[in-house]
């Protein structure tokens, strides 16, 4: 079947098999930031934005993505680098394999939640597994990033 969607702002048209998950399609399009960590919707590594909302691309049917706007980390390079610097300042980038899915959700969270506290952050990101960091360094990075955003907003 033919599918048409906007990938990181560019129109993409392709002939695909209807049972292909969005994840496979995105990697086929060269979006290698999209990673797979499981087959059971249990790791969050494959997170991307569909119409600005985070979804698990491993189980998201491609058909449903037809006509939508999809954003992967490739389309968020500036924000990824900005937050990524905070992550690296904690040494919490580690192996990096979970970073894209995690960062997608961090970005989505900062867009969606006003002033999230520690519990909100943990809840929002609970679906993103990471086996390297033990999560503490990620949390420190997110808090510092939010603080930084806030002070930017205040024009400091």
């Amino acid at each position: 079947m033919e599918i048409k969607l906007w990938l990181n702002g560019k129109a993409v048209r392709d002939d695909v098999s209807p049972d292909m998950p969005l994840l496979e399609f995105l990697r086929k399009q060269g979006m290698y930031s999209v990673k797979r960590g499981c087959e059971t919707s249990g790791c969050g590594l494959c997170s991307v934005l569909v119409e600005g909302k985070p979804v698990l691309s491993c189980t998201y049917p491609l058909m449903r993505a037809d006509g939508t706007h999809i954003t992967t980390l490739e389309g968020l390079e500036k924000e990824a680098e900005e937050f990524g610097a905070f992550l690296a300042d904690e040494g919490a980038d580690q192996c990096g394999f979970c970073n894209p899915g995690f960062i997608i959700n961090v970005i989505a969270m900062t867009r969606e939640l006003e002033n999230p506290d520690e519990e909100d952050i943990k809840e929002y990101l609970a679906g993103n597994l990471c086996r390297c960091t033990g999560f503490m360094g990620q949390l420190r990075a997110v808090k510092k990033y939010i603080e930084h955003k806030r002070s930017e907003g205040r024009g400091e």
């Binding site: 290698y32 390079e77 990524g84 690296a88 980038d93 990096g96 970073n99 960062i103």
Partner: peptide
Amino acid sequence: PIRKKDYKALVTGKPV
């Protein structure tokens, strides 16, 4: 506590 040398590629999802 310096940053890891490969951090930029990792946080921007480069194909590595």
